[in-house]
């Protein structure tokens, strides 16, 4: 019991998720039905993949405001380029995402421009690309294979969720077990010390910007296949911020050097559960946003309170 309590204190997001599940089940018993739970997993898949990429970048000490537009752009490409064949369309969509990430990463790591400004620029600029490409029209998929994939499931579990899960597991593994993962924590934790240890800090930053945008592009492709369409407004205006919020909910530090994919998943599920519950309860989606804002601040507040309590026990002096 004490152990559980300590875990919740360290990672308040799981306590909040549990609490939400209990409350929502009481208010709307149909919440806990299998069908509904699977639905939550399906709806969380896109956010989940994108949050994985963002977690990498945030552990590295940066964040990316352009993920929502990158997602929209790659969705548009994945649908619009289907005349070339599904496979080429998807590949191009992913490469476009990675390319935007490379530009972001280059400008931040090499040209030393502030990441906020760089990704704010691509956030706006790539949206322009979407409008140019789509001519402001919604694109509808032509191939049933594509949309069938998006609504398919394996052993009753949505394929998209399985994809997200696989990506998350690999991502966590890489983060913990490879030099790149360790370098990411080191650069985010202390840029100068990492550089002095001979770590290629610029390369690490570059790679994580690319991974973050690539994850957003994967999210875009998955979303497009689920809807079998892409609208020019996908991800506009605030999906980028929702993804950052999700990662923060999972306890990843905004200053870098700390965080994990597992707990980011806690953030992803929490947001999925809230959205689903408010639908079940027929609450206007505006309340949905209000509530999510409140929860975000609550979690971060709780986290900092617990952290203070922990630190009071072990302050260090020079």
């Amino acid at each position: 019991m004490k152990k559980i309590l300590r875990f919740f204190k360290k990672k308040p997001i799981w306590a909040i998720l549990l609490l939400l599940v209990v409350i929502i089940t009481i208010l709307a018993p149909e919440f806990i039905r299998r069908r509904n739970l699977l639905n939550i997993l399906l709806q969380s898949s896109v956010n989940g993949v994108m949050a994985v990429g963002m977690t990498y970048l945030m552990i590295n000490g940066f964040f990316d405001l352009s993920v929502g537009t990158v997602m929209g752009f790659s969705a548009a490409l994945a649908v619009g380029l289907q005349p070339l064949g599904i496979f080429p369309a998807v590949i191009i969509a992913l490469l476009a995402g990675a390319g935007i990430g490379a530009v972001n990463g280059f400008l931040v790591a090499r040209a030393k421009i502030n990441a906020f400004v760089v990704t704010l620029g691509s956030f706006i600029g790539v949206r322009g690309l979407i409008y140019i490409y789509t001519k402001e029209d919604a694109l509808i998929g032509e191939r049933m294979v594509f949309s069938d994939f998006g609504s398919s499931s394996v052993l009753g579990i949505p394929t998209l969720f399985i994809i997200m899960l696989v990506i998350a597991v690999i991502a966590e593994f890489v983060l913990r077990k490879t030099p790149h993962g360790r370098n990411t924590y080191a650069v985010g934790g202390n840029y100068e010390a990492a550089e002095n240890a001979g770590i290629r800090v610029n390369r690490t930053v570059m790679v994580n910007f690319i991974l973050c945008s690539l994850a957003a592009a994967v999210g875009g492709v998955l979303l497009a296949s689920r809807m079998n369409a892409a609208t020019p407004g996908l991800g506009w205006p605030d999906q980028n911020l929702m993804i950052i919020a999700t990662v923060v909910l999972g306890g990843t530090s905004l200053n870098g050097g700390y965080g994990s994919i597992v707990h980011t998943m806690g953030g992803v599920l929490t947001i999925g559960v809230i959205q689903n519950a408010l639908n079940l309860l027929n609450v206007q989606s505006y309340y949905n946003m209000l509530l999510m804002g409140i929860i975000l601040i609550l979690v971060v507040f709780a986290d900092s309170r617990f952290k203070q309590a922990r630190n009071a026990l072990r302050v260090t002096d020079s």
Binding site: Y185, A186, G189, N190, E192, A193, A194, N196, G257, Y258, S318
Partner: peptide
Amino acid sequence: KEQGLVLKM
């Protein structure tokens, strides 16, 4: 602390 160590590690 500033240049040698990653304190969180």
